[in-house]
Nucleic acid binder design. Structure first.
Lengths: 226, 226
DNA sequence: GCACGGCTCCCCCGCCCGGGGGAGAAGGAC
DNA sequence: GTCCTTCTCCCCCGGGCGGGGGAGCCGTGC
């Protein structure tokens, strides 16, 4: 599906660099179903603009002088009724702020070095309610695959980013503090097998180690504390 | 009465000191009618374990780094259907927390320096529904051992049970997925210093590695997802 | 004065972890 | 049939992690 509906998707750009805003505007405005309805140079200006423009999506930079994208995301989601989707624009996929943005309630992530087709895909996806929860999705969108057109392709990527049953099972045991050897004993398989699953989980989640994977599991609601 | 029934009494151990857990396990497992079905290093991890293991009795330490036995007892009794009996394990018979534990709904008390026979007796009693409601009962169980404890020891326990400011700061960065080197850069200290803090945190939390520490942080509300 | 705890940094050492690559068996989809 | 995914297991290898010590500095408290 290319069009989410008859109405074009309205986007608010929030970035302190005019060049980045111009680039995003050019890329997005080239699409018939996307429309940039406003720009802001800092997170501090977001809330009144959101109230005024009612955008569907806010493309939010992380690092900004006055109010960063994390705080701005928090503020928008806390104070605005029917808040827009927040697409966090980041430079590095393993940026630690990604985790904070997750907690703040961001709906997706976008790498600045992503290609135009991937950028519009990301905007469409979050507009449709899809969550690009895991940085892995960002990496794959920006990664080896062409993504010339395609939601279909983007979805395929997301599908491959989804955990298999076994991987989810392993992640579940990881979130309970088990070591690879303990997981192997529990699942009655070899430790090398567990290592394979763990590596797959880390890769798909864009996590550097099991600790980050567990954090993502908590932040994404994969496991609920208490 | 030695046997409460045909089914052995299942016990969940909750103490931040592995040594205490090992000791309790050894003492209880020596009895044919008692069975240790699980261990936790902090009150924070109790609720999911209780839900999973459905123990008859929870031997709950009072002073724990993240979530103490009082709060953990309250949480279990408030959120779990058909909750287990809570046997509070304490070091000092006149511990002020004993009275709080009473109000929280604990079913019995056990002094750490009690003899093995008294420990198994206490577990059997609460399992049968008997309440060791009053500290007097604790004193009786403690027998002649009682009365010889100093405030210095109490303070040592207190101090050891809580994270220092720096340790809490380090734990906070751990819950954001940072490595030791990244934490060191953030705090502008050496990696060896961070390793010291991390080791202290792991020790106090009874966690084997940073992943378990992060899990405890989430389960205790030290960090809140979303 | 002294003692103690917290913060800092250092050493050595073992090992688990994670990356990279490969490979076979089983099952489903085309 | 072929292709693909999943699950399983194996190899080598480096590096981060965690345990065990110790040590100096600097506060507070006795």
């Amino acid at each position: 599906m290319i069009y989410a509906g008859l109405m074009p998707v309205s986007v608010l750009l929030v970035d302190d660099e005019p060049l980045v805003r111009a680039g995003l505007r050019a890329v997005l405005e080239a699409q018939p179903d996307l429309r940039v309805v406003g720009e802001a140079a800092d997170g501090a200006a977001v809330i009144p603009l959101v109230r005024e423009l009612r955008p569907d999506v806010v493309a939010m930079d992380v690092r900004m002088p006055l109010l960063d994208g994390i705080e701005a995301t928090r503020a928008v989601l806390r104070t605005v009724q029917n808040p827009p989707k927040i697409l966090v624009v980041t430079t590095f996929e393993n940026d630690e702020y990604v985790y904070e943005a997750l907690r703040a309630g961001a709906d997706g992530f976008l790498l600045k070095r992503a290609r135009p087709a991937e950028i519009v895909n990301a905007v469409r996806l979050v507009a449709e309610g899809e969550s690009l929860l895991f940085p892995a999705a960002v990496r794959r969108l920006a990664g080896e695959h062409g993504g010339r057109h395609g939601n279909a392709e983007a979805r395929a990527v997301l599908d491959r980013a989804a955990l298999t049953e076994r991987e989810a099972e392993v992640l579940g045991l990881m979130t309970r503090g088990l070591s690879n050897a303990e997981i192997a004993a529990r699942l009655v398989v070899g430790t090398e097998t567990v290592k394979s699953h763990v590596s797959a989980v880390l890769g798909k989640l864009g996590a550097r180690d099991r600790t980050q994977a567990v954090i993502l599991a908590y932040e994404s609601g994969f496991v609920a504390p208490g």
